[in-house]
Amino acid sequence: MSEAHIHPTANIHASAVVEAGARLAAGVQVGALCYIGAEVEVGENTVFGPHCSVIGPTRIGRDNRFVGHCAIGGEPQDKKYQGERVELVIGDRNLFREFVTVNRGTGTGGGVTRVGNDNWMLAYTHVAHDCIVGNHCVFSNNATLAGHVEVGDHVILSGFAGIHQFCRIGAHAFIGMGALVNGDVPPFVMVAQDGYGRPRGINSEGLKRRGFDAGRISAIKRAYRALYMSGGTLEEARAKLAELAGDSDDVRAVLAFVDAGERPLLR
C-alpha cells in the first residue's frame, strides 16, 4: 500500500496514527490519540479533536469539526454484512460533537452512507448504515437513525428521538423529544411523543425562522389538514393535495413525498 498523503500544512499530533493510504488535505488537524485509517480522505481545514477514529473507505469534505471521541466510518451494524467494500461520504462544514457514531453502508443497501453539508450532530447521536442525511439538519443529543433512513434538509431531531429503519423524514420536519418514528414523516410536519410519535401540526415556527411568508405557511397548513384532519382515506387526501398543489411549490413537495413512499405514512 502507498504511503499516507499528508499536506505539509496539516497538523498531526505525535500520538495520532495515520495509516498508509490516507489522504489529508491542507490545514487538517488531527488531535491526540486519533486513528485515521487507510482509504480515508479528509478535505481542507477539517479538525479532529482527541480520541476520534475514522475507518475507510470514508470521504470527508472541508471545514468539518469532530469535537472528540467520535467513531466515524465503522462497519455497519448489520448481520448481513460480509466484509464487502462499502463507503461513508460526508460533505462540508458539519459539526460532530462528542461520541457521535456514523457507520458505512452495506452491500445490499446501496453501499454508501451519506451526510450532506452544514449539519449539527450533537453528543451521542448515531447515523446507521445506508442512511442519507441532507443539509442544515440538527440532531440533538442521543437522536438515532436506524439503517436506510432518509432525512431531508432543515430537519430537527430533538433529544432521544429514534427513527425506525427505512423511514423517510421530509424537509423542514421537526421530531419532538423522545419521539419514536415508525412511518414516513412528510415535509414541514411536526411530530410529538405519545408512545410512538404522532403528527401534531406543522413546524410553523421553524418555517418562519427560515423566511417562509404567511402565504406559504397557510398553503402548507391546508395541505396538512387535507392529509391528517379530513377524515378521509389516503387516496382521498392525495386527490385533495393534487387540487391544492396547483399554485404552491410547497404543497407539490408534500404530494411528491407522499407519492414516492413505499412505507406507510406516520398518521
Rank of each mutant, 00 (worst) to 15 (best):
residue 38 A to Y: 07
residue 261 G to N: 11
residue 224 Y to H: 10
residue 264 P to C: 07
residue 120 W to D: 13
residue 262 E to D: 15
residue 234 L to C: 11
residue 31 G to N: 04
residue 261 G to I: 10
residue 123 A to E: 10
residue 9 T to I: 08
residue 159 G to V: 03
residue 253 A to Q: 12
residue 2 S to A: 15
residue 171 A to E: 13
residue 171 A to H: 13
residue 30 V to S: 05
residue 206 G to C: 00
residue 238 R to A: 02
residue 141 N to M: 08
residue 89 V to K: 12
residue 69 H to M: 11
residue 247 D to V: 12
residue 11 N to S: 14
residue 222 R to I: 04
residue 87 E to R: 15
residue 99 F to T: 13
residue 135 N to K: 09
residue 258 V to M: 01
residue 112 V to Q: 03
residue 216 R to Q: 10
residue 143 A to N: 02
residue 145 L to D: 05
residue 207 L to I: 12
residue 131 C to S: 07
residue 234 L to K: 10
residue 253 A to I: 11
residue 60 I to P: 00
residue 3 E to A: 14
residue 22 A to N: 03
residue 60 I to A: 04
residue 219 A to N: 10
residue 93 R to K: 11
residue 150 E to N: 15
residue 84 E to V: 08
residue 45 N to F: 06
residue 106 T to R: 03
residue 67 V to C: 10
residue 154 H to G: 10
residue 154 H to W: 11
residue 154 H to C: 10
residue 14 A to K: 15
residue 42 V to M: 06
residue 118 D to R: 11
residue 22 A to V: 02
residue 145 L to M: 06
residue 237 A to I: 04
residue 35 Y to C: 04
residue 222 R to S: 06
residue 70 C to L: 00
residue 59 R to C: 06
residue 237 A to H: 01
residue 232 G to N: 09
residue 161 A to T: 12
residue 248 S to R: 00
residue 122 L to G: 06
residue 108 T to P: 07
residue 97 R to V: 05
residue 17 V to M: 10
residue 1 M to A: 14
residue 225 R to S: 09
residue 20 A to F: 08
residue 159 G to F: 01
residue 125 T to E: 06
residue 56 G to W: 03
residue 209 R to L: 07
residue 239 A to F: 05
residue 115 V to L: 05
residue 196 Y to H: 15
residue 178 G to M: 01
residue 210 R to F: 09
residue 157 L to Y: 03
residue 197 G to Q: 05
residue 263 R to H: 07
residue 55 I to L: 13
residue 176 G to L: 02
residue 182 N to S: 15
residue 3 E to I: 14
residue 100 V to S: 00
residue 256 A to S: 06
residue 1 M to G: 14
residue 112 V to G: 01
residue 11 N to Q: 14
residue 131 C to N: 03
residue 169 I to W: 05
residue 36 I to Q: 07
residue 43 G to Y: 00
residue 53 S to H: 11
residue 118 D to M: 05
residue 54 V to T: 07
residue 8 P to H: 02
residue 70 C to T: 07
residue 23 R to L: 13
residue 163 I to E: 00
residue 91 G to V: 02
residue 91 G to L: 01
residue 32 A to T: 13
residue 242 A to T: 01
residue 28 V to G: 03
residue 181 V to T: 00
residue 185 V to L: 03
